[in-house]
Design a protein around this nucleic acid. Sequence first.
DNA 1: CCTCATAGACAGACCTGTATGTATTTGCAA
DNA 2: TTGCAAATACATACAGGTCTGTCTATGAGG
Lengths: 214, 214
Amino acid sequence: METRGMLEFVDVEGQPLNALAPRERILKTASDLFYRFSIHSVGIDRIIAESGVAKMTFYKHFPSKADLIATYLRYKTDTWFQMLATSTERAGLSPLERVLAIFDALEEPFRAPSFRGCPFVKGLAEFGPEANSPDVQATIAAYFKGLHGFAASLIEPLALSKPERAVIQILSLFQGAMVIAQSTRDPAIVEANRDAARVLLEDALITSPEPELR
Amino acid sequence: METRGMLEFVDVEGQPLNALAPRERILKTASDLFYRFSIHSVGIDRIIAESGVAKMTFYKHFPSKADLIATYLRYKTDTWFQMLATSTERAGLSPLERVLAIFDALEEPFRAPSFRGCPFVKGLAEFGPEANSPDVQATIAAYFKGLHGFAASLIEPLALSKPERAVIQILSLFQGAMVIAQSTRDPAIVEANRDAARVLLEDALITSPEPELR
DNA sequence: CCTCATAGACAGACCTGTATGTATTTGCAA
DNA sequence: TTGCAAATACATACAGGTCTGTCTATGAGG
């Protein structure tokens, strides 16, 4: 039999997994399994089996499971911020619309049957302050810090009198939408929270120095 | 030596744990460990050791770990809803203030150094749709359903034209506050989101049939 | 030949749940 | 109050499984 052992392996979206290099195959498989089942409940052996890779190959690319977890979270961070950038950097958006565009980015993930909530909230649930995985914890913290900075950079042009306050309110609506979508499976939360954000920002603009930026 | 073996066991708040019945000792210990370290990463042996109980005693009170987890989550549900009831049922609150009072309930938990986020969001992170623990999953779902119903009952007297929309917005601010507080450790999110909720509700009241209820 | 990946056994630690036997507490009766 | 039996809890060993990570040996391709 000349067929290679991995020929039948396929990832969730039906993409051929065997075409990818071993490292990408491992990462994609792990990403899917970690996100679906939680990190602690997915063992190395399962990742190896489903990615069609030998154990030694795995440990050559990822020295430890913690290493793979951190890489998985960095991978999620990258794709997530790319989605946010795509939504907010569309041409012709006013500063206010640019803030509201972060909610548009949620529309597609929420409609996907594979949506299971925010990977970083889930990560924090499994690797909180008392965990003993500095790499993983640092990666999670970096995401939240990055998201805060991103929101702040979108809100800064509005020249609100209390920008930090608006930042955490918008971030609450953003992260809250994920929790609600995860527990209700209803994407209606996107539109509701985008409108809520608009009401909040317009209210804040009234009492701010330069309302013409609206 | 006539001292009992469990005399030195003490729980996190410094309360004597040995005064409690074994079942309560197990539940309190498990509750603390599950919440601090996540559920999957805390084994039965550790709960048994830290609660100063024999293994057979444990399995007499809780037939399985899943049973203990579900009990833990029901325990958290009860205390959580009691806190919400205490805040919202204070005398002299208008219907609008009653809704905003759910944010007051967050103040104390957020200031506690032991705060680690929403136990049910964390639970959902470890026991999502693909998990194989019906009791645990049902308990988590019951919390979210109960919270939704609770918020709806608070908002219903406001007679908004789109009450359901307000409910999920307020719940987003509520759950979002937990995520933000967990990642930033800054209780300022409580006041910010209570004010956000006020702005949203007042805006919704303007376009509703009976604004005098404000 | 040489590099890379595969295949699979293995060690040591940890997991849940069971079994066995001993000690302590409790309830009740005298 | 004292005595005793039943219920409860303790301590510990163990089985069977899973976990991470290492090791050895084999095969395919440039």
